[in-house]
Structures are given as structure tokens and as C-alpha cells.
Design a protein around this nucleic acid. Structure first.
Ligand code: ZN
Length: 361
DNA sequence: TGAATTTGACCCTG
DNA sequence: CAGGGTCAAATTCA
């Protein structure tokens, strides 16, 4: 872990720059006239922050990955009340947990913010998984209620993934989605791309094309930590600087169906969303999510974090594209999972991600 | 009719 | 006790 030399860092920066490039391209497109000014502003701030980040990387020359300020440490959490089976409801009552480190069954909390452009009544984006709503609660201090969802295959396959969806106070078209756990369910046969054989020879080409029309008229950003170096506020829209954002002009988006505008069964976008949601940053405490501003230090530690996030995102992207390209029946989550564990161990292979830059070129 | 949502009660934690 | 998460009966949906 200490052997991260400048080379890898350089690639990282390159990746960042590619990201910037892409953002600029998008901004360019939006400036053409058909884009909303808000979006342009958003993109601009995005570019700014990413640039800032890159500069920080270059200046610091290296990044030693040490999350010093995770503060919360929260970990906490939940006792393992997840014992769905009545079979074993014995034996876990009085346990003063001095330390419940669930080594293998860790609950992860991934918060992403999803904005769907389109109608006023916009359904949350379909992330490629089927969810069943099991509750809804009014949250104190929040304008909109929070919906509780769990994977449809909870019983059938024991998939314990859950998510919470809630509209942002400021912008009702923006949703905060918090994912818990990971999907262990196996994906059904892909109906949409069924009759779509793809040669494995030019997977890269396929992936590239996928990547190109990968984005639709929605914005997905992963929110790890708060506290951007700059405190841009309220122009119109978001006030938090997201580490990552994907958006593009509304190319032929599916016309509003009767109910679900995003009824596409398995589109690249969905895959991306799913993958992205799987690859979020760890250690986000409740209090953090509730506190948009707070803390001001913009140390190098943050950069390390950013890196990690970026790498995660990139790997997610790669996973998504690969998955889409090969259309493999094997669970996509498996790949992502593997990547995640690698990341967890701080053993990410830089060489793996690098090819993505060529996609953006 | 089976599956998914709605919705208030219930439960757990701080 | 309040706030947030889950259960489950009733209800709607396909
Ligand atoms: Zn699942």
C-alpha cells in the first residue's frame, strides 16, 4: 500500500483530466442552447472542483492513502438484527456488544444523489434491480417522506439489499438514494438485449460505444464526503459538490410511457447506475448526511479520499461497460464486488482502470 | 388471483 | 420519549 508511486498517480491524474475533458464537452453541448442554465452552472462547478482536485494531486505529488478524518467512525451501527429466518431466532438477545465488528457481513451505506430531468412527477431512476417498497416515513425536518425498499428477491434468494429513497428538500426533482448492503441475487436473463449477440473480439469497441450513449438525461452523482474546498451556494440547484457526475444532453430518451418513463429493462445507463451505487465510498455517518456544511479543512487527506472514490467510480464504470458488452449471465454484482474488496484492501490495480481514458478521447 | 403498494402500528435505539 | 426503521393487514394493481 505504500508503494504507490508517482506513475500510478500520474495515471490517476490523467483519468481526472479525462473526466474534465468529458465534462467540458458536455458543457459545450449544453451551451449550444438547449441546455438549462442550471445544468451549465452545475457542470461548471463540477469542472472547477475536479480541476482543483487534479491540481492538488499534482502539487502534492503523491497521495498516501490514510483516511485520517473519517471522524465519525461510526461504524456503528447496527447490531445484526438481520435474522430473517425464524429458524434461528434463538440465542441472540442479550448481547452487550462491546464491539460488533461484522467481519464478513458488513453493512455498507452508499448514498448517491439522483436527479431525473423530465416531468414534474418523476419516478426515481431504475437502477437495474427490482425493489419492493415496504414502508414510508415522514422524516422530521424533511419536506418529503422517505421510502423504504428492499430487494424483491429477499425471500427467494435471500438478497438482503435495501435502499431508501427521499426527495431533496430544495429540489423535488432530486432524489437521495441510500443503499444498504449488496445484492446477492442473481439477475434474470436479459430480455432487452437478448437478441443481441456481441463478439468478444472487439469488446472494447462495443464498450466504447456503450460508454458513448451511456448517459441519458439524468444525473447521477455519488456523494461521499461533504465539504468541497469551495462553498458555492445557491445559485439554483445543488449546493453540494459531487465527486462524480454523469450527464449528457437528452438524446433520444424514451418517451414518457404511461407510468414509467424509465421502463427500459436493462440499459447501459441502468447498469451504470447500479454499478455506481455499488461503488460508493464507505464511512458516511448519519450526521454527515444531515450536515451539508460543516468542517472546512481541505487537507491532503481529502485528496486521498477523492482518489479512492474516483477509482471506485472508474472501476464501476469498467465493470458496467464490461458487463454490458459481454452480456454475461454471471451476476454483474460479483464483478463489482470483487473490485470493491480489492479497493477495501487498498490494492487497486491502476493498470486496470487506465483503458477507460481512451474511451473519453 | 398473485404480486406490489399503502399505511398505521409496532419496535428499537439513543 | 421521540425519531426512524420495519411489519403486516388491507388495498390496489396487472
Ligand atoms: Zn437483490
Amino acid at each position: 500500500m505504500e508503494s504507490m508511486e508517482g506513475n500510478g498517480g500520474g495515471r490517476l491524474v490523467v483519468t481526472e483530466l479525462s473526466h474534465i475533458k468529458e465534462l467540458v464537452r458536455q458543457l459545450e453541448g449544453h451551451l449550444g442552447g438547449s441546455g438549462s442554465p442550471d445544468l451549465c452552472k452545475h457542470l461548471a462547478s463540477q469542472i472547477f472542483s475536479v480541476t482543483e482536485r487534479s491540481i492538488g494531486m499534482i502539487r502534492s505529488g503523491h497521495f498516501d492513502g490514510h483516511r485520517k478524518r473519517s471522524a465519525a467512525a461510526v461504524a456503528a451501527g447496527d447490531l445484526d438484527s438481520a435474522t430473517p429466518s425464524p429458524l434461528s431466532d434463538v440465542s441472540d438477545l442479550p448481547f452487550k456488544a462491546t464491539k460488533k465488528r461484522k467481519t464478513s457481513t458488513e453493512k455498507k451505506r452508499h448514498q448517491i444523489r439522483v436527479s431525473s430531468t423530465g416531468g414534474v412527477e418523476n419516478p426515481p431512476v431504475d437502477d437495474g434491480h427490482s425493489w419492493r417498497k415496504y414502508g414510508q416515513k415522514e422524516i422530521l425536518g424533511a419536506k418529503h417522506p422517505r421510502g423504504y425498499y428492499r430487494c424483491t428477491h429477499r425471500h427467494s434468494q435471500g438478497c438482503m439489499a435495501t435502499k431508501q429513497v427521499q426527495r431533496t428538500d430544495e429540489d423535488a426533482t432530486v432524489f437521495d438514494v441510500i443503499y444498504h448492503g449488496e445484492h446477492t441475487c442473481v439477475h434474470k436473463a436479459v430480455a432487452a438485449g437478448a437478441g443481441k449477440p456481441e463478439t468478444e473480439t472487439d469488446t472494447n469497441a462495443a464498450a466504447e460505444s456503450r460508454l458513448h450513449d451511456l448517459s441519458s438525461g439524468l444525473t447521477v452523482k455519488i456523494e461521499g464526503l461533504t465539504a468541497p474546498p469551495q462553498q458555492q451556494q445557491g445559485g439554483g440547484g445543488w449546493n453540494a459538490m459531487p465527486p462524480f457526475c454523469l450527464s449528457s444532453p437528452v438524446s433520444g430518451l424514451a418517451p414518457p410511457d404511461q407510468h414509467n418513463p424509465f421502463s427500459a429493462p436493462s440499459t447501459p445507463e441502468n447498469r451504470l447506475a447500479a454499478a455506481a451505487s455499488s461503488a460508493a465510498s464507505p464511512a458516511t455517518s448519519d450526521s454527515m448526511a444531515a450536515a451539508p456544511f460543516h468542517q472546512a479543512a481541505a487537507g491532503g487527506g481529502d485528496e486521498a479520499w477523492r482518489d479512492a472514490e474516483l477509482q471506485e467510480v472508474v472501476s464501476a464504470l469498467v465493470a458496467a461497460t464490461t458487463t454490458t458488452a459481454t452480456a454475461q449471465p454471471a451476476p454483474a454484482t460479483a464483478m463489482v464486488d470483487a473490485d470493491l474488496s480489492a479497493l477495501d484492501a487498498f490494492e487497486f490495480d491502476p493498470g486496470f482502470t487506465i483503458d477507460i481514458t481512451s474511451f473519453f478521447a
